[in-house]
Design a protein around this nucleic acid. Sequence first.
DNA 1: ATAGCGCTGTGAACGAAATCACAGCGTTAC
DNA 2: GTAACGCTGTGATTTCGTTCACAGCGCTAT
Lengths: 242, 242
Amino acid sequence: MSPSGMGMVVPEETPVRRARRTGAKPLSEPQVSRLSLYRRQLQARPLASPATIHSHALAALCGTSAAHVRRDLMTIGFNGSPARGYDVEQLIGAIGRELDDPDGQRAALVGVGQLGRALLDYFTTRRPNLRVAAAFDVDPAKTGRVIHGCRVWPLDDLAEVVREQGITVGVLTVPAEAVQEVAERMVAAGVVGFLNFAPVPLRLPARTFVEEMDITTSMERVAYFARALVAGGRRKDEHRAG
Amino acid sequence: MSPSGMGMVVPEETPVRRARRTGAKPLSEPQVSRLSLYRRQLQARPLASPATIHSHALAALCGTSAAHVRRDLMTIGFNGSPARGYDVEQLIGAIGRELDDPDGQRAALVGVGQLGRALLDYFTTRRPNLRVAAAFDVDPAKTGRVIHGCRVWPLDDLAEVVREQGITVGVLTVPAEAVQEVAERMVAAGVVGFLNFAPVPLRLPARTFVEEMDITTSMERVAYFARALVAGGRRKDEHRAG
DNA sequence: ATAGCGCTGTGAACGAAATCACAGCGTTAC
DNA sequence: GTAACGCTGTGATTTCGTTCACAGCGCTAT
Ligand SMILES: NC(=O)c1ccc[n+]([C@@H]2O[C@H](COP(=O)([O-])OP(=O)(O)OC[C@H]3O[C@@H](n4cnc5c(N)ncnc54)[C@H](O)[C@@H]3O)[C@@H](O)[C@H]2O)c1
Ligand SMILES: NC(=O)c1ccc[n+]([C@@H]2O[C@H](COP(=O)([O-])OP(=O)(O)OC[C@H]3O[C@@H](n4cnc5c(N)ncnc54)[C@H](O)[C@@H]3O)[C@@H](O)[C@H]2O)c1
């Protein structure tokens, strides 16, 4: 409210910054998603790119608006210069400090079927700060092996391995009938976050976070809005041409 | 406002119902998602289930609130009886009338790799109203075959096949470097809705709908909120125990 | 120097979606 | 028959995320 003289390069106290420094983590779900994308897009830039980037350019890379970018970076207390924009290297670091666990986080994937194998491959090509440390299956034909660098354990070893490795994240690619029970066993073993690919919503106790990857619903959504576009004069999600 | 005598079983005019009847389609994105899930959960019920269901029960199946369910069903103009609840069979039909194209919709999947093959398998076990009618790949080793009941064409045939089969939905499982170009070719051929599994946001012209299935971001979201749960006294997405 | 431009940081306005709250009615219990 | 209950349908309210708009400042051009 009172426009006190505020430095631009040397960060001083603003309400949001104060809130952050005092320990509160006011990151909303969409903000976390966007920050994750910002970082990935920045890291994917060609090697010979400028060392700084403007909010407009980052927004274009990520399909958002410049205001959005500025608001998000403000929220994590990162600031740039009006002239040069944001320092890319530092920004990547700042997002990491926000999203990553400094000690690393480990995930377990349960259900090494078609989708599970594809995901194992996908995740092993990712950074080590958040890696799939173990996989599980009930099928004895699948256990004991190492797939895409990840050992596949019998489901019975779940609690033991999860505890030993300090696993807190679960990726569920088991058949729909099995997913509720598997998830409950994982919660009992200490897993608190889930990425669920089975097409039924999980019902888990409080103090648990579940992300439903409902591909069927996504497909029906696309079909519905595609139809709306063809039929009426209607736009739901517009993207500008590159 | 004026509580005119309204029938309960025989539906009469309410503002929302009038809006719907006059052709407007005020379904929001989250509503489409929920309706898709309602239908799937209703169809997945055991055969010997009651013919009607209350909003509370359906909400429990889907992880929402009863108010949410009632509001959604009101939006599509479907009404139940205070005593019995909603007629399941009719509700399934009503949702279908809302979400499905009566003439059916066809989708094309591009990129028959690990993920693409898993998805082909998954989608062929779904209803025929929205089916993957064709797959494409650049790799000659993959084209010409029929995988999971779906013929794999060379990418060069894309425009022709899309036009012939009236395909309006695209599923993108090609490498990140290729996805923008592939999507643009599909738009040129007449595809308007996309489900994009590549980890880069698409930039497409207006009158196009894109659903980003960003698994990396979802994973980082889960990790972040899982960590928040373990660390501070914090809950982002609570689910009650079944 | 100095004028002007354009970008950041951010309060404020806006909009949409979720949630609350309750009137009205069918049903069941007695 | 009558009273009490519980569910639906829906206006009203709240919550939350997005977007607007602009003050302040550094850089560049002249
Ligand atoms: N295939 C896809 O593209 C796709 C897409 C969306 C959703 N899904 C969902 O993902 C899940 C897996 O799909 P899929 O195509 O990989 O199936 P799949 O049959 O190929 O794989 C399932 C795997 O889970 C294992 N399994 C079964 N019960 C188990 C249990 N109780 N504990 C541990 N492992 C168990 C099986 O041995 C098998 O290896 C399903 O729920 C499916 O609906 C799959
Ligand atoms: N594997 C996963 O679980 C997973 C998870 C999330 C996202 N993704 C993304 O999905 C995409 C595919 O992943 P994948 O693991 O199946 O990779 P993959 O290499 O197994 O498959 C890619 C397929 O695309 C084909 N292809 C390459 N260029 C093409 C082009 N221009 N046109 C048509 N086809 C082309 C290749 O021949 C190959 O068959 C990638 O963008 C990946 O980042 C994969």
